[in-house]
C-alpha cells in the first residue's frame, strides 16, 4: 500500500475513465493526459489501463508500505526517494518504507505516478478514476489516504530502462477541427481564433481550460438545444471566451461548440498551466453531409 503523506495541491487516482456511460450523464473522466499515464504504466509492465496517481503541480509526498516498481511521467518534477534523486520516465525500485518526495514541475501541470500492479481502489462503473465533476470514484487524495496496490504477479516483465517523453511547450500550437457549430459564430470567428494566442486562465481544472484572448462573436443568439459534447470540445458561453473540455467535462451542454481539439493535442492542452498560452490552428471539419 501507499500512504499519502501529502497530496500536493491536488491529486487523484486516474485510469482511462468511464467511456460508454455518457448517455446516462456520466462523464468520461480518466487521466487528463492519458498518453502520459499509459507510458508510466508500460514502464512498470502494467496494462495501459491500470490506475495511477495524477498529481497537479507536483508537490506530493508518498510513503511506500511495501516495496514497489514505480514510474513517473508527464510534467517533469524533481523526485527523491529517501533523499536519493530518482528519475522521470524510468522504472524506479522503491524499497519498503521509503518516502517519495515529488517537487514542483519545471514545466507542464500534471505528473503521473504508476505503480507495478496498479492502484487497486474499488472501481465504480468499471473505472477507478476520480470524477471531479460528478463525484464518482474515490475522493481526491488527502493526507492520510491509504491506497492499496494490486497484485503484480500477472504483469509483464519490465523491459525498458527509460523512455523519452515529448518536450513540453508553454505556448503550443493546437489543431482545432472546426464544427460542429462553427456556423453559430461570425464568419471571421475561425480567423479570430487563430489571430493571436489565448492565455490559460486560473479557473482551470479537470473539467475544462478557460481561455482569455479574442472574444468570439456570435452570429446567432440563444442556446442550442442540449447536445452531446465530445472530449476536447471548445465551447463558447455567451461571454465569448472559449473553454476547452477536458476529461471530466459534462456529457451534454447548450453552448455552441466552435471546434474540437484534435485528439493528439488534447493531452497538450491538459498540461498547460494558468498563464501559459496556446495558438489554435483551425482545420476544416470535412464531410458535412446534408
Amino acid at each position: 500500500m501507499i500512504e499519502i503523506v501529502s497530496p500536493g495541491p491536488y491529486a487523484t487516482v486516474q485510469d482511462l475513465g468511464r467511456p460508454g456511460y455518457a448517455h446516462l450523464g456520466v462523464p468520461r473522466s480518466g487521466a487528463a493526459d492519458a498518453p502520459s499515464l499509459c507510458l508510466a504504466n508500460r514502464l512498470v509492465g502494467n496494462p495501459e489501463s491500470a490506475a495511477g496517481i495524477e498529481l497537479t503541480f507536483g508537490g506530493a509526498v508518498l510513503r511506500f508500505g511495501d516495496s514497489a516498481w514505480i514510474a513517473l511521467t508527464g510534467a517533469p518534477c524533481p523526485v527523491e526517494a529517501d533523499r536519493r534523486p530518482a528519475g522521470m520516465c524510468a522504472p524506479v525500485w522503491v524499497p519498503q518504507g521509503v518516502t517519495l518526495r515529488v517537487g514542483a514541475p519545471r514545466e507542464g501541470l500534471r505528473t503521473y505516478v504508476a505503480v507495478r500492479g496498479g492502484i487497486a481502489v474499488e472501481p465504480v462503473l468499471d473505472s477507478r478514476s476520480t470524477d471531479s465533476l460528478s463525484g464518482l470514484g474515490p475522493p481526491a487524495l488527502r493526507a492520510g489516504t491509504v491506497l492499496p496496490v494490486g497484485d503484480a504477479e500477472q504483469q509483464t516483465a519490465i523491459r525498458v530502462d527509460s523512455a523519452v517523453q515529448s518536450p513540453f511547450s508553454s505556448c503550443p500550437s493546437v489543431r482545432l477541427v472546426l464544427g460542429p457549430r462553427a456556423d453559430w459564430f461570425a464568419t471571421d470567428a475561425a480567423g479570430a481564433l487563430a489571430a493571436g494566442p489565448y492565455e490559460v486562465a486560473t479557473e482551470t481544472n479537470r473539467v475544462g481550460v478557460r481561455l482569455r484572448g479574442t472574444t468570439l462573436e456570435r452570429a446567432r443568439e440563444g442556446e442550442i438545444p442540449s447536445e452531446g459534447m465530445p472530449l476536447g470540445a471548445v465551447q463558447v458561453p455567451p461571454d465569448g471566451r472559449p473553454i476547452v473540455f477536458l476529461a471530466d467535462h459534462p456529457t451534454t451542454g447548450g453552448y455552441p461548440v466552435i471546434g474540437v481539439v484534435a485528439a493528439r493535442d488534447v493531452p497538450v492542452v491538459a498540461q498547460l498551466r494558468p498563464g501559459d498560452r496556446l495558438w489554435f490552428r483551425p482545420v476544416p471539419g470535412r464531410g458535412v453531409r446534408t
Binding site: P19, G20, Y21, A22, H23, R28, P225, S226, E227, G228, M229, P230, T251, T252, A263, G287, R289
Partner: peptide, 24 residues
C-alpha cells in the same frame, strides 16, 4: 462505437477507432 449520446434533437456518436467516413 464507444458512446451514443442523445440530445434534444441530436445524437452524438463517439468512435475514436472507427473510419469516420464509413461510420458517416
Amino acid at each position: 462505437v464507444e458512446d451514443i449520446v442523445p440530445g434534444q434533437e441530436t445524437v452524438l456518436v463517439v468512435a475514436p477507432d472507427a473510419d469516420q467516413e464509413r461510420l458517416e
